[in-house]
Simulated assay, not measured.
Amino acid sequence: MTSPAIDKAAARRAFTRAASGYDGAAVLQREIADRMLERLDYIRLEPQLVLDLGAGTGYAIDGLQRRYRGARVLALDFAEPMLHQARRRGSWRRRPECLCADAERLPLADATVDLIFSNATFQWCNDLARTFSECWRVLRPGGLLLFSTFGPDTLKELRAAWSAVDGHPHVSGFIDLHDIGDALLRARFADPVMDAERLTLTYERVADLMRDLKQLGASNAASARLRGLTGRRRLAAVEAAYEADRVDGRLPASYEVVYGLGWAPLQRPVADGVAVPFSAIDRRLGGGR
């Protein structure tokens, strides 16, 4: 299954620019990460290696280290400046190990990871089936994938406002919960569980929402997006269309948050793949020890 096409180079550039200011706008992302960490309270697992997949600036690292004090935490992201922020997490004795790579092609050996924790990352993958297969490949038998992503109702108000102005995509597309669950099953995960909830942020102006999205690096990266600058007249038309959604003096921005988990089977065939042993990964960004 392929996701709505994302221009990965454009997305990487956006997250690279956003790295230094990301935490100032990541209210929703932190809330989702906290809810995912709470879910781990009900799961019996004693991992040796935890992969924070799409770690961003590493907000979840502290919580993962507190929960699994004997585990090594590897932060992986496709934007290196994000990892420079993540590298500062944890105590000086337990800085996370960092790896700049794409979630769709993990440079890790088979069956080396006990827990993959991935918060709000998979919507940036063009081939979710391949991404899940890679997660399955690197998990040890009995390992767990726990993730969140966004469903089709995410930013529905902004999408509708833009649709009233032109026919170009201005909001990235998102995959339905049921299709994500089917992809987990096809990737051979055992006992998959999917659920979703709706969360809403509110803004005084549309410009405030767009500023937050830009600060997060979550600007439009659809391959079919309209290139070039957006004129003031079109922005004014979007703002006017969005006004229809104003409630109690505020403009809502809806998010459909999709959660999923799946287990690597205890008995499974060895998957094909070219990978680098985890022991060969440099512990520092930029090389050297």
Rank of each mutant, 00 (worst) to 15 (best):
Asp245Val: 02
Arg232Ile: 04
Arg250Ile: 08
Arg246Gly: 09
Leu261Met: 10
Gly228Val: 15
Leu229Ala: 13
Gly262Trp: 04
Ser254Phe: 07
Leu226Cys: 07
Arg232Trp: 05
Ala244Met: 04
Gly228Met: 15
Arg234Lys: 13
Arg250Thr: 05
Ala240Asp: 08
Leu229Ser: 10
Thr230Tyr: 00
Asp245Ala: 12
Ala241Thr: 01
Ala241Lys: 00
Ala253Thr: 06
Tyr259Met: 14
Pro252Trp: 05
Tyr259Ile: 11
Val257Thr: 06
Tyr255Met: 06
Asp248Leu: 12
Leu226Met: 08
Glu243Met: 06
Arg225Met: 04
Ala253Lys: 01
Ala244Cys: 06
Gly249Phe: 14
Val238Thr: 02
Val257Cys: 11
Leu229Lys: 10
Val247Leu: 07
Arg225Ala: 03
Arg232Lys: 13
Glu243Phe: 02
Tyr259Asn: 14
Leu235Met: 15
Arg250Cys: 08
Leu235Cys: 05
Asp245Gln: 12
Val258Lys: 07
Gly228Trp: 14
Gly228Tyr: 13
Leu261Glu: 06
Arg234Asp: 10
Val247Asn: 06
Ala244Trp: 04
Gly228Thr: 14
Leu251His: 02
Ala237Ile: 04
Gly228Lys: 15
Arg225Glu: 00
Arg234Cys: 04
Glu243His: 03
Leu229Tyr: 09
Val257Ile: 09
Gly228Asn: 14
Asp248Tyr: 09
Val247Cys: 08
Tyr259Arg: 15
Ser254Ala: 11
Leu226Phe: 06
Gly260Phe: 09
Tyr242Lys: 00
Gly262Asp: 07
Gly262Leu: 13
Ala241Glu: 05
Leu235Arg: 08
Leu226Pro: 00
Leu235Ser: 00
Gly249Lys: 15
Val257Tyr: 09
Arg227Val: 13
Val258Ala: 06
Tyr242Leu: 04
Ser254Asp: 14
Leu251Gln: 07
Gly262Phe: 14
Val238Glu: 01
Glu243Arg: 08
Ala236His: 10
Arg227Gln: 14
Arg233Thr: 07
Arg225Gly: 02
Val247Ala: 09
Val247Tyr: 00
Tyr255Phe: 14
Arg250His: 11
Glu239Trp: 01
Arg234Thr: 05
Glu239Ala: 15
Ala237Leu: 12
Thr230Leu: 09
Gly260Tyr: 05
Leu251Lys: 05
Gly231Trp: 06
Ala236Val: 03
Gly249Cys: 14
Tyr242Arg: 00
Val258Arg: 05
Leu235Ile: 04
Gly260Asn: 09
Ala240His: 04
Ala244Pro: 00
Ala241Trp: 00
Thr230Trp: 00
Leu226Ile: 03
Pro252Asn: 10
Gly231Arg: 08
Val258Tyr: 07
Gly228Phe: 14
Tyr242Pro: 00
Val238Ala: 02
Glu239Arg: 10
Arg232Val: 06
Arg246Cys: 10
Arg246Glu: 03
Gly260Leu: 11
Ala240Cys: 03
Val257Arg: 09
Leu229Gln: 11
Ser254Pro: 12
Val238Leu: 03
Pro252Phe: 08
Arg250Asn: 03
Gly249Trp: 15
Ala241Tyr: 07
Arg246Trp: 07
Ala237Ser: 15
Tyr255Ile: 09
Glu243Asp: 08
Glu243Ile: 06
Arg233Lys: 13
Glu256Thr: 07
Arg246Ser: 05
Ala241Asn: 01
Gly260Cys: 08
Tyr259Gln: 12
Gly249Val: 06
Glu256Arg: 12
Arg225Gln: 02
Gly228Cys: 14
Leu235Val: 01
Gly231Met: 08
Val257Met: 09
Val258Met: 11
Ala240Val: 01
Glu256His: 12
